[in-house]
């Protein structure tokens, strides 16, 4: 449930064009502290683009994104400071292949001088324990399974002690038998009160864990509501079509 009324990130009429293609056509959204927002929708609808705008991996064409009281869509803002507080987990894991699991997790906090090396190591080991793979600490990513790699990626993002976590289809690149272990880590994170925005095709997970579900299609939020409203009683035609296709 939504823990309180504090808005963590606030998006105001966000537009994003790639050249002549309008990918996002005016999206506004407030995400509250401790809230879990799941984003579903048809392929090409703009879900990833929207998520990537939230930490300015894509520069919005127009609109505002307020985080920590600052409009991070403003290009004069030092985005690096704010990105430290916005964790991101990618479909393809994107672990650093030339670093061990431990080094992957320690790198950013040490480089950004948030922690000294020793503290970072202790913290990294704690996080690995939390995602259930402390025994892999000194291995290189390529020797891990997909599910294990994605759990390391989650630990790496958590090492920065973020205020919010973004997930872009974190289980889509996984073999079916590994989906569960990653979703379990995410669910635990949600229960511990992490604010999360998750793009997912796992409808069961969204129904189970989300406080709010958004359907993004054609660059707009076509419908939003509680999982019950969206999955059991969708109002919008596009939601109905989408759910009919995937369920």
């Amino acid at each position: 449930m939504i823990a309180n009324d504090n808005i963590k990130i606030s998006v105001k009429s966000l537009y994003k064009d790639f050249g002549k293609t309008n990918v996002l056509n005016g999206i506004s959204l407030d995400v509250y502290e401790g809230e879990v927002v799941c984003i579903i929708g048809p392929s090409g609808g703009g879900k990833s683009t929207f998520l990537r705008c939230l930490n300015c991996l894509e520069d919005p064409t127009s609109g505002n994104i307020y985080f920590d009281g600052v409009d991070i869509a403003d290009v004069t803002v030092d985005i690096n400071i704010h990105r430290q507080k916005i964790g991101m987990v990618f479909q393809q894991f994107n672990l650093f292949p030339h670093k061990t699991v431990l080094e992957n997790i320690m790198l950013a906090p040490v480089d950004r001088k948030l922690l000294d090396k020793e503290t970072a190591r202790v913290r990294a080991l704690e996080l690995l324990k939390r995602v259930g793979i402390e025994e892999k600490a000194n291995d290189y990513p390529h020797s891990l399974s997909g599910g294990q790699q994605q759990r390391v990626a989650i630990a790496r993002a958590l090492a920065m002690n973020p205020d919010i976590m973004l997930f872009d289809e974190p289980t889509s690149a996984l073999d079916p038998e590994m989906v569960g272990e990653v979703l379990a880590v995410m669910k635990e994170l949600a229960q511990q009160g992490m604010t999360m925005v998750i793009v997912t095709h796992e409808m069961g997970f969204a129904r189970d864990v989300a406080d709010r579900v958004l359907l993004i299609a054609d660059g707009v939020i076509a419908e939003e509501g509680t999982p019950k409203e969206i999955f059991d009683n969708p109002q919008n035609k596009r939601t109905q079509d989408f759910l009919a296709a995937v369920l």
Binding site: L57, N80, R83, F96, H98, D111
Partner: peptide, 25 residues
């Protein structure tokens, strides 16, 4: 491309990401 994005998403500046993540690979 995901390597640079992962590094930047952690708050590492461009040149730091280049030096620590991209160039070694």
């Amino acid at each position: 491309k995901g390597q640079m994005e992962a590094a930047r998403s952690l708050g590492l500046p461009y040149l730091t990401s280049m030096r620590k993540i991209i160039l070694p690979q």
